[in-house]
Amino acid sequence: MTFVTKLRFQSGDRVALDDTVDGLRDLLERKGAECKGPHTEPSEHVRVPLSGNLAPGSTIADWSYEVFSRRLEIHGNDHIAREVGHMEFPDSVHVEIEVEHKRPLGYQN
Protein backbone atom coordinates (compact mmCIF):
# COMPACT_ATOMS: atom_id res chain seq x y z
CA MET A 1 0.00 0.00 0.00
CA THR A 2 1.30 3.41 -0.97
CA PHE A 3 0.73 6.84 0.45
CA VAL A 4 0.48 9.94 -1.74
CA THR A 5 1.21 13.21 0.03
CA LYS A 6 -0.41 16.16 -1.74
CA LEU A 7 0.91 19.63 -0.95
CA ARG A 8 -0.80 22.87 -1.94
CA PHE A 9 1.04 26.17 -1.54
CA GLN A 10 -0.62 29.60 -1.73
CA SER A 11 0.84 33.07 -1.40
CA GLY A 12 0.40 36.65 -2.49
CA ASP A 13 4.18 36.83 -2.94
CA ARG A 14 5.03 34.94 -6.13
CA VAL A 15 8.81 35.09 -5.56
CA ALA A 16 8.58 33.61 -2.03
CA LEU A 17 6.17 30.94 -3.31
CA ASP A 18 8.43 29.91 -6.20
CA ASP A 19 11.53 29.88 -3.98
CA THR A 20 9.78 27.69 -1.40
CA VAL A 21 8.37 25.21 -3.92
CA ASP A 22 11.58 25.01 -5.99
CA GLY A 23 13.69 24.52 -2.86
CA LEU A 24 11.40 21.75 -1.65
CA ARG A 25 11.43 20.07 -5.07
CA ASP A 26 15.25 20.12 -5.12
CA LEU A 27 15.34 18.64 -1.60
CA LEU A 28 12.95 15.84 -2.57
CA GLU A 29 14.99 15.00 -5.68
CA ARG A 30 18.24 14.89 -3.67
CA LYS A 31 16.64 12.48 -1.20
CA GLY A 32 15.38 10.26 -4.02
CA ALA A 33 11.65 10.79 -3.53
CA GLU A 34 9.25 10.36 -6.44
CA CYS A 35 7.78 13.80 -6.90
CA LYS A 36 5.20 15.16 -9.36
CA GLY A 37 4.95 18.87 -9.93
CA PRO A 38 5.06 21.66 -9.18
CA HIS A 39 1.82 22.29 -11.02
CA THR A 40 0.76 25.90 -11.40
CA GLU A 41 -2.88 26.83 -10.89
CA PRO A 42 -4.39 30.02 -12.32
CA SER A 43 -3.93 32.97 -9.99
CA GLU A 44 -6.95 34.23 -8.08
CA HIS A 45 -7.81 37.93 -7.79
CA VAL A 46 -9.28 38.77 -4.39
CA ARG A 47 -11.08 42.02 -3.54
CA VAL A 48 -11.74 43.13 0.02
CA PRO A 49 -14.18 45.98 0.68
CA LEU A 50 -12.91 48.62 3.11
CA SER A 51 -14.75 51.27 5.09
CA GLY A 52 -13.38 54.70 6.00
CA ASN A 53 -14.86 54.59 9.51
CA LEU A 54 -17.58 52.78 11.42
CA ALA A 55 -20.44 54.93 10.05
CA PRO A 56 -22.80 53.05 7.70
CA GLY A 57 -22.18 53.71 4.02
CA SER A 58 -18.70 55.12 4.57
CA THR A 59 -16.55 53.17 2.14
CA ILE A 60 -13.22 53.71 0.46
CA ALA A 61 -11.61 51.94 -2.49
CA ASP A 62 -11.46 48.15 -2.27
CA TRP A 63 -8.19 46.47 -1.46
CA SER A 64 -7.31 43.93 -4.13
CA TYR A 65 -4.51 41.43 -4.37
CA GLU A 66 -3.54 38.32 -6.30
CA VAL A 67 -3.08 34.83 -4.79
CA PHE A 68 -0.75 32.37 -6.54
CA SER A 69 -0.97 28.58 -6.07
CA ARG A 70 1.27 25.59 -6.71
CA ARG A 71 0.64 21.85 -6.19
CA LEU A 72 3.18 19.11 -5.53
CA GLU A 73 2.76 15.36 -4.92
CA ILE A 74 5.11 12.95 -3.15
CA HIS A 75 4.50 9.28 -4.01
CA GLY A 76 5.61 6.68 -1.48
CA ASN A 77 8.64 7.66 0.64
CA ASP A 78 6.56 8.06 3.81
CA HIS A 79 9.54 9.08 5.94
CA ILE A 80 10.42 11.94 3.57
CA ALA A 81 6.80 13.09 3.41
CA ARG A 82 6.73 13.07 7.23
CA GLU A 83 9.85 15.29 7.26
CA VAL A 84 8.17 17.73 4.88
CA GLY A 85 5.14 17.87 7.17
CA HIS A 86 7.35 19.07 10.04
CA MET A 87 9.28 21.66 8.00
CA GLU A 88 9.06 25.38 8.66
CA PHE A 89 7.81 27.47 5.74
CA PRO A 90 7.83 31.29 5.35
CA ASP A 91 4.91 33.10 7.01
CA SER A 92 3.88 34.52 3.63
CA VAL A 93 3.29 31.00 2.22
CA HIS A 94 0.19 29.02 3.23
CA VAL A 95 0.69 25.23 3.05
CA GLU A 96 -2.02 22.55 2.98
CA ILE A 97 -1.02 18.89 3.30
CA GLU A 98 -3.30 15.99 2.38
CA VAL A 99 -2.31 12.33 2.69
CA GLU A 100 -4.10 9.81 0.49
CA HIS A 101 -3.84 6.05 0.95
CA LYS A 102 -3.58 4.24 -2.41
CA ARG A 103 -4.25 0.52 -2.56
CA PRO A 104 -2.96 -1.74 -5.33
CA LEU A 105 -5.31 -2.70 -8.14
CA GLY A 106 -7.43 -5.69 -7.14
CA TYR A 107 -6.89 -5.14 -3.39
CA GLN A 108 -9.84 -6.17 -1.22
CA ASN A 109 -10.38 -5.71 2.53
Results as ranks from 00 to 15, higher is better:
residue 2 T to Y: 09
residue 2 T to P: 03
residue 3 F to H: 11
residue 3 F to L: 13
residue 4 V to M: 12
residue 6 K to R: 15
residue 13 D to Y: 07
residue 15 V to N: 04
residue 15 V to P: 00
residue 16 A to R: 07
residue 16 A to E: 13
residue 20 T to E: 01
residue 21 V to S: 05
residue 25 R to T: 00
residue 31 K to H: 06
residue 32 G to D: 05
residue 34 E to I: 12
residue 37 G to Y: 12
residue 42 P to H: 01
residue 43 S to Y: 05
residue 45 H to I: 04
residue 45 H to V: 06
residue 48 V to L: 08
residue 50 L to V: 15
residue 51 S to T: 15
residue 52 G to S: 11
residue 53 N to M: 10
residue 54 L to S: 14
residue 55 A to E: 13
residue 56 P to N: 09
residue 56 P to Y: 08
residue 57 G to A: 09
residue 60 I to P: 03
residue 61 A to H: 10
residue 61 A to M: 08
residue 64 S to K: 05
residue 65 Y to V: 00
residue 67 V to I: 14
residue 67 V to P: 00
residue 69 S to I: 02
residue 73 E to K: 10
residue 73 E to M: 09
residue 76 G to N: 03
residue 77 N to L: 06
residue 77 N to A: 15
residue 78 D to P: 00
residue 79 H to W: 09
residue 81 A to N: 04
residue 82 R to D: 09
residue 82 R to S: 08
residue 84 V to W: 04
residue 86 H to I: 05
residue 87 M to H: 02
residue 87 M to S: 03
residue 88 E to H: 10
residue 91 D to W: 10
residue 91 D to S: 13
residue 92 S to Q: 13
residue 95 V to L: 05
residue 95 V to E: 00
residue 96 E to F: 06
residue 96 E to T: 10
residue 97 I to D: 00
residue 101 H to N: 13
residue 102 K to H: 14
residue 102 K to Q: 13
residue 104 P to D: 09
residue 105 L to I: 11
residue 106 G to F: 02
